[in-house]
Simulated assay, not measured.
Amino acid sequence: MRPDPRETDPLSDVVAWRAGHIVAIDQTALPGEFRVLHIATVNELVDAITRLAIRGAPALGVAGALGVALAVAQSEREGWTAARLETEVERIAGARPTAVNLRREVLATAAAIERGPAAVEAAAAAVRDAVIDASLRISERGARYLSQACGTRPLTIHTHCNTGALACLGWGTALGVIRMLHEQGELGKVIVDETRPLLQGARLTCWELGQLGIEHYLACDGAGPFLISRGLSDAVVVGADRVAANGDVANKIGTYALALAARRAGVPFVVAVPESTIDDATASGEQIPIELRPADEVTRVLGVPSAPRGTRALNYAFDVTPAELVTAIVTEDRLIFPGRAAGTDAAAAAPKVSR
């Protein structure tokens, strides 16, 4: 039996509830500084979410659920009206539009408000526990799938952005699958895209892999498809912020190019997500709202200007990978082969793995 990550992994407390407030690791400070935020108001939480101090779809869902408890506690202290409380809860839900987990978990937890603060805290804690449990099950299922799809030789996995404990709690999603392969002796090394513009791959994924003692190599985003074309990767494994009902996948900008390269090279392109990231209410990727972020994230690198003053930027935070390019979606409960319906070769070649 695998150990409970809540007992063995200190990063499972990346977002947690402590004595009436939220504690969270400030992901904008890593890897240079390990800084813990103590968040006592809705304003502080919304700021932490929008500036990406808290990020990653599952972690955002947990932050949103705990945020409802935070809003209720602040309401009790400051004597808010019911209408004000509803407004503040909506501010949390809308802090980032692309990741479906945030709004979903906010609304689910807010349903307990009428039962009182203790019920809200219990509902938020249940969301957090479910996210951690799901991460371990995703890790196990994804590693088992890749072992069958690619063989049990030491594998080289290409990944993008950050999908470990920092983004997903517990073991993570895509990075959890990688971690499980490592524990089973089936991982050779990991190729990590830097992930422009905020370098979550370079700053966060490389940091987590280093903590785990996993061999890894950093690559420029633009080099990823070329490396895949040269046969340097056995599979591409990524997370997602939303999966549409048809299997289209919204993930960090740069993912689409990796999926195209994986299809051309004939290697699996696997998306690891919790069930809560699948949005059956959104028919396809065309309906997924894509966040457009400030230009200075592109025109500056870690605060240092990298473009002439006045340069404008198209800083879309996410792209959408069509379902036909996705070999498999791995969740805590099942394997989904979205491209299979389109009759694609990669999908047809994917092994059937039982639940």
Rank of each mutant, 00 (worst) to 15 (best):
residue 134 A to L: 04
residue 348 A to R: 15
residue 136 L to A: 15
residue 30 L to P: 00
residue 109 T to P: 02
residue 164 G to T: 09
residue 3 P to F: 03
residue 123 A to Q: 10
residue 145 Y to D: 01
residue 55 R to F: 00
residue 261 A to M: 06
residue 130 A to T: 08
residue 10 P to F: 13
residue 337 F to R: 12
residue 143 A to Y: 05
residue 317 A to M: 07
residue 324 E to N: 11
residue 41 T to L: 05
residue 54 I to V: 15
residue 337 F to Q: 03
residue 81 T to D: 02
residue 230 R to I: 02
residue 259 A to P: 01
residue 103 R to H: 06
residue 84 R to F: 02
residue 200 Q to N: 01
residue 57 A to V: 09
residue 335 L to H: 15
residue 168 C to D: 01
residue 307 A to P: 00
residue 100 V to P: 00
residue 49 I to A: 01
residue 259 A to G: 15
residue 28 T to L: 12
residue 173 T to F: 10
residue 80 W to F: 13
residue 229 S to V: 00
residue 87 T to D: 14
residue 45 L to D: 05
residue 151 G to R: 10
residue 70 L to H: 10
residue 236 V to T: 10
residue 133 D to G: 08
residue 25 I to E: 03
residue 262 A to Y: 10
residue 288 I to E: 01
residue 249 V to D: 00
residue 192 V to P: 02
residue 141 R to A: 13
residue 323 A to S: 12
residue 180 M to I: 04
residue 199 L to M: 11
residue 311 T to D: 01
residue 12 S to W: 08
residue 126 A to G: 01
residue 260 L to E: 05
residue 144 R to N: 11
residue 113 I to R: 14
residue 209 L to Y: 10
residue 37 L to W: 02
residue 66 L to H: 13
residue 199 L to W: 12
residue 268 P to V: 09
residue 352 K to F: 14
residue 282 T to M: 09
residue 63 A to T: 07
residue 187 L to P: 07
residue 243 V to D: 03
residue 341 A to K: 12
residue 267 V to M: 03
residue 157 I to A: 00
